[in-house]
Design a protein around this nucleic acid. Sequence first.
DNA 1: CGGTAAACGAGACGGTACGTCGTGTCTTTGA
DNA 2: TCAAAGACACGACGTACCGTCTCGTTTACCG
Lengths: 194, 194, 194, 194
Amino acid sequence: MSQAPSPASRGRPRDPRTRTAILTAARALLDNGGLTAVTIEAIAAKAGVSRPTIYRYWPNAPAVAMAAFLEASGAPAAGKTSRSPLAALRAQLHAVADAFAAPGGRSVAAMVAAAQSETELAKAFRNEFIARNRDAARLMLERCIAEQLVFPPADIDLALDLIFGPLFYRLLMGHAPITRGFVDQLLDAVVPAL
Amino acid sequence: MSQAPSPASRGRPRDPRTRTAILTAARALLDNGGLTAVTIEAIAAKAGVSRPTIYRYWPNAPAVAMAAFLEASGAPAAGKTSRSPLAALRAQLHAVADAFAAPGGRSVAAMVAAAQSETELAKAFRNEFIARNRDAARLMLERCIAEQLVFPPADIDLALDLIFGPLFYRLLMGHAPITRGFVDQLLDAVVPAL
Amino acid sequence: MSQAPSPASRGRPRDPRTRTAILTAARALLDNGGLTAVTIEAIAAKAGVSRPTIYRYWPNAPAVAMAAFLEASGAPAAGKTSRSPLAALRAQLHAVADAFAAPGGRSVAAMVAAAQSETELAKAFRNEFIARNRDAARLMLERCIAEQLVFPPADIDLALDLIFGPLFYRLLMGHAPITRGFVDQLLDAVVPAL
Amino acid sequence: MSQAPSPASRGRPRDPRTRTAILTAARALLDNGGLTAVTIEAIAAKAGVSRPTIYRYWPNAPAVAMAAFLEASGAPAAGKTSRSPLAALRAQLHAVADAFAAPGGRSVAAMVAAAQSETELAKAFRNEFIARNRDAARLMLERCIAEQLVFPPADIDLALDLIFGPLFYRLLMGHAPITRGFVDQLLDAVVPAL
DNA sequence: CGGTAAACGAGACGGTACGTCGTGTCTTTGA
DNA sequence: TCAAAGACACGACGTACCGTCTCGTTTACCG
């Protein structure tokens, strides 16, 4: 009966604990059980939240899983700037390798899989997780170039593909383990190629 | 009361058309709709076969999909031996790139995804599809080494990871297209690194 | 600590248009779609009113429907006193028959149905709608008796049951139409029986 | 792979206990709780049957309730033929009155209500329950006429409306109890009117 | 005239039930 | 013995309303 031109929030505000509870539950389910365990039903039960509430936040189960995954996989530990950029890059990739090798690494693979069926998820995964890793590595590479530790490559994106490609390849195929030694070999082979 | 227990087949033999019909239907569903479209229900309807029959051949839907995929992705076209092994390797990878870029490439990604949740599928995919590609490439590489076209690398499997990794990386992330130019750049960077 | 609970209104008075809007919307939904279409959600949307507001007026959806129905089914048109009371009674029942036969008649049936599950509604329906019709007819009957047009029946309530019973029976069972001819036959049979 | 022109049943036959279990559970829920208690969920739980199974038999909850009701309200006890047909009619109506007055009478009202929203249910209720009662009464009436106990009425269906209408009217409105005395009064008024 | 109390809209939230889909198993009949 | 048809329990889906609540805003009255 009266108008409602309020610019900012209208209605009852969302309880911030709801969102957190959902994502925490989803993350836990993802870590055990993998992607198929992340059902709306299970999340609702574990988070103590009703199913419709989850749908108020995300459109379906994989979307929740992706959100939980991205939230959890925060910013990659920033390489210490004190070290040489080449050492920093190596350290950074070691961190990625560790993450992939750890039980949580299965989640990464699961999210890659999930991103195959829905464009929205693919975009989110690419723009958040993938871009995050690439950007960090790109920064290091550019510092190396600036300090003339490596020869400027024709295409820095190709260089990033050369570095990350084999890592994900091993993660997803599982034909060989992802060790620190593997990362070292990888860098030793790629860096001179630039 | 019962006669000779014929050592081989007992009772009504399996109609070979059944198996074919199932795989054909599964393949069709995989190509449109992707992995989620490959349901036992849909296969049964499309193949004109009952659901229990499918279960008599495979344990679940992803397994049928994988079988259909592997059956369809036959042996990679053998590189002409007349050419230089390096050119043959390049030609082979061009073929892979073409396959990945084609609509069927989505199926490859789908199967990678499917292989994440079940060990059995992962093994099948690795031992058939991945190994097939790697073995073909390994053969070429070894010929190159034999003809002293490339320096013998410390680890030939690492070399294969360097080659195939970026290809799958692009396929699965979709952050950049998989062109023949990309393959050429890739080889130009990797080969001298060996 | 708390002062006089001012007997009359405190705070902002209710906007009279709110009540009207809700009842109008409920009535419209009742007429199409029937009772199941009368949901709080739909009323709120149609009336441009928030859901809690409706609950401030009535406890649940059927109650709103009943209120809307009773409000709409105003007093039965008073029979002209100039005519003979018997003719007036007949005219009155013709009006009821017309109302039942009209599309709005479905609402009557719907409210009978609604009254089955909740005592409160049953009481309201009985005391308002049923009583209204019975009282009007009783008045006419008593006039007939006073004017010695009919023999004084033992039980006037039974007489009313004899008159209204078949009408509602046909309305609710739908095994035969409710025509004016039916009303005439009904009266012709019942009146001499008294 | 082969055609299926088998005339009789194909596939696994329905377990007859399933149907019974569902109807029994529905009937129990209907008797306590009324129509709103008859939810597919509750039936499934009580009958130890899965929800989809129920949907394989009936399209929705009211339909199950109706089926349960009709199954339970078997044939009306046939009046002893040894008595006079008038006495038999009276006895039959006494039985109906008893049924209406008993707790199960609420179910009858509930089914009348349910029949208001769906044509299919209305038809079933009319053709089974209503017709059953009417036919039994019609038979008695016709015998009375044959034995010249009552004057042949112009319209026997109207006579049935006169008899059953008030009964249902009281059942549904609840403004007065349904006693045997009421039935007697009813007959005493209606029979001479014919 | 300014404080207070209620009306009101918006929307979050936990529930319950819905009707559907797909799964994997089992039980028949028929080839 | 294979195969087709279909019954069945199970689990999850995504949706619709429910009734309650917590806000922010509005509007009257009353001190």
